[in-house]
């Protein structure tokens, strides 16, 4: 028991890094996703094509490769760009480039979710809004967006949990600086010290599971609030389809 408590204490600072990566990339990624989803649905063929291609590329390739690609790209631009500008300590830092790549990645996945929801918004509602003489912005603000976010919320919850899980590979692709270790690196280093795979990896898994449950619970509360005008909705369930 004491052993497990000591183990939990060892992982406490590590889980903060995973939470940081997720928390830093989710809000920006959400904003990016709204732009991408609207862009994909846009009537401008150039914009629509670009957004479609972006979403396809980032959903169709592994996050692991994306990490390596962006990090090595940043490294190769170091001499010509970052160093003269004096920002290489910032740009090349895992705490910056990790959330950057995660943002680009989750932006694409979330955009696909939002785009699906956007297409599911009833046409009649939009036509009614237009008949009332609403401007395009008013239509979006008061008719499209409220329906869209309600339709997309359960899938977005999964995406957030999945993004949190994806933070596990950040430090397999980026350098570990000093004591800045996330859950996976901590588990791996402890394993290499005493070869107790079952204890260390289980504790890491427990942390991932616990944070996932917290995310599910809090996003479920938001969903309840979004759906408060409807009678007795079934809440979000833990472990629905997690498709990425």
């Amino acid at each position: 028991m004491e052993r497990i408590l000591a183990e939990l204490a060892l992982f406490m600072p590590a889980v903060l890094f995973n939470i940081y990566f997720a928390a830093a990339s989710i809000p920006v990624g959400f904003g990016l996703a709204i732009l991408l989803a609207l862009g994909k649905a846009s009537r401008n063929p150039l914009l629509s094509r670009f957004c479609r291609g972006y979403i396809y590329a980032f959903r169709g390739s592994p996050l692991f490769i994306q990490f390596f690609m962006f990090y090595s790209l940043a490294l190769s631009l170091n001499i010509s760009l970052w160093k003269p500008w004096g920002i290489s300590w910032f740009v090349l830092h895992p705490l910056f480039i990790g959330p950057l790549v995660l943002t680009l990645n989750t932006g694409a996945y979330t955009a696909e979710i939002l785009y699906g929801a956007l297409r599911a918004v009833p046409r009649g509602a939009i036509e009614a809004a237009r008949a009332f003489g609403m401007s395009p912005w008013q239509q979006f603000r008061s008719v499209v967006w409220p329906t869209l976010i309600r339709l997309a919320w359960p899938a977005y919850t999964n995406e957030v949990v999945f993004l949190f899980h994806a933070t596990a590979i950040v430090y397999f692709a980026l350098p570990v600086i000093g004591q800045q270790k996330d859950l996976m690196i901590t588990a791996k280093e402890l394993f290499e010290r005493d070869y107790n795979a079952f204890l260390h990896f289980s504790v890491a898994a427990l942390f991932f599971l616990a944070v996932s449950l917290v995310v599910f619970f809090s996003f479920g509360l938001v969903y309840r609030r979004l759906m408060r005008h409807l009678p007795a909705q079934p809440g979000l369930r833990f472990a629905p389809k997690w498709m990425r």
């Binding site: 795979a197 990896f201 991932f208 997690w242």
Partner: peptide
Amino acid sequence: YASIVRGVPDVLFFLFFPLAFEQ
């Protein structure tokens, strides 16, 4: 099986299983 394996990151299980099997 369905909920636990999906509740933890795939990388974790991907690393854990071969190590645990070997041990």
